[in-house]
């Protein structure tokens, strides 16, 4: 917690400084508010760091217990899905992506997974594209 707060604190201070410097080029009217917010944020962050000194060090999460690997895999799959969907379209990528994620989260039980991913895709497609005419990414080749 303590260490985390310090890291966060420094990031926030950096952000406040970047905003302060970044708004230097703005026309006067446009720069007051961002600068005020940056200054307040700087003050609050320092306050937080000071408060932090008196707080007992609590453990927020233990890296050993923290299953970041699966979270990271899911994140990567989602990111790839976003990129591929832009080109290949919604209908093909979605069931594949769903199946992949389900498989990463818990192995086995293919029937349920295939069924639910296909039904989900079809339902979303039906409501958005067919019923409401909201276009989803389509095959773009």
């Amino acid at each position: 917690m303590k260490r985390g707060s310090i890291v966060a604190g420094f990031l926030l201070i950096a952000l406040a400084i970047v905003v302060w410097i970044g708004s230097a080029a703005f026309t006067a009217d446009s720069s007051y508010f961002p600068r005020a917010v940056a200054a307040i944020m700087l003050g609050l962050t320092i306050l937080m760091l000071l408060e932090n000194r008196t707080v007992r060090d609590q453990v927020v999460f233990e890296w050993e217990k923290f299953n970041y690997r699966r979270t990271a895999i899911i994140f990567v799959i989602t990111s790839i899905y976003l990129v591929i969907m832009a080109y290949v379209g919604f209908l093909i990528t979605t069931p594949i992506c769903l199946l992949l994620m389900m498989q990463v989260l818990e192995k086995g039980d293919w029937k349920v997974k295939i069924l639910s991913s296909v039904i989900t895709t079809a339902a979303i497609y039906y409501v958005f594209q067919m019923m409401l005419d909201v276009p989803l990414p389509a095959w773009s080749f």
């Binding site: 591929i84 290949v88 093909i92 990528t93 594949i96 199946l99 992949l100 498989q103 990463v104």
Partner: peptide, 13 residues
């Protein structure tokens, strides 16, 4: 499984 699905989707592309 991940690899296989990726390959299949690539082929589709």
């Amino acid at each position: 499984m991940v690899a296989m699905v990726l390959v299949v989707s690539l082929m589709l592309v």
